[in-house]
């Protein structure tokens, strides 16, 4: 079985995986990083979004071996100690989460959007979140949070 090594939230992590092991499985089961969630099996829901080399990726659609050598950031790696990342803080401030299950993927996806577009319009946010399902919020407050979070990030994370 292959061994993979990647930088996860700033630390080098290695593990033995099967060829078919998904990145999300490696993160959750090998590394115990259970903040990244699995909500579906067709790459539709986006609960599993993480950053691979700075870009948002659905970690259910990426093999662990594909991320060998990569720099991976999960929701656990976003905050600076006890200080929430501006996007996390914006979700809290604007009640952009309810049950919290889609939230890690939403936040990671939103950070990628903000890195590309520091002041996204409501329309741009709604279009960007095409790959993230939420059943609780009706998206209203998520959209508010993403826009506020992007502005608070001031053009980059």
């Amino acid at each position: 079985m292959p061994t993979v090594t990647m930088t996860v939230n700033g630390m080098e992590r290695s593990g033995t995986v099967e060829g078919r092991t998904l990145l999300v499985e490696f993160l959750r089961e090998n590394l115990g990083l259970t903040g990244t969630h699995v909500g579906c099996d067709t790459s539709q829901c986006g609960a599993c979004v993480v950053h691979v080399n700075g870009t948002s990726v659905k970690s259910c659609t990426c093999l662990a071996v594909q991320a060998d050598g990569a720099d991976v950031t999960t929701i656990e790696g976003l905050a600076n100690g006890a200080e929430l990342h501006p996007m996390q803080e914006a979700f809290r401030e604007h009640h952009g989460l309810q049950c919290g299950f889609c939230t890690p993927g939403m936040v990671m996806s939103a950070v990628d959007l903000a890195n590309r577009n520091p002041d996204p319009s409501e329309h741009e946010v709604r279009e960007w979140l095409e790959g993230n399902l939420c059943r609780c919020t009706g998206y209203h407050n998520i959209v508010k949070a993403v826009r506020a979070g992007a502005q608070a990030m001031g053009g980059g994370s």
């Binding site: 990083l33 259970t34 809290r92 919290g100 936040v107």
Partner: peptide
């Protein structure tokens, strides 16, 4: 009031059954 539960959900520290 901002929610008590949000910090754990926003930082990936929620504890769902599959976790």
């Amino acid at each position: 009031v901002k929610r008590k539960e949000d910090t754990r959900f926003l930082t990936g520290r929620g504890r769902y059954t599959d976790d």
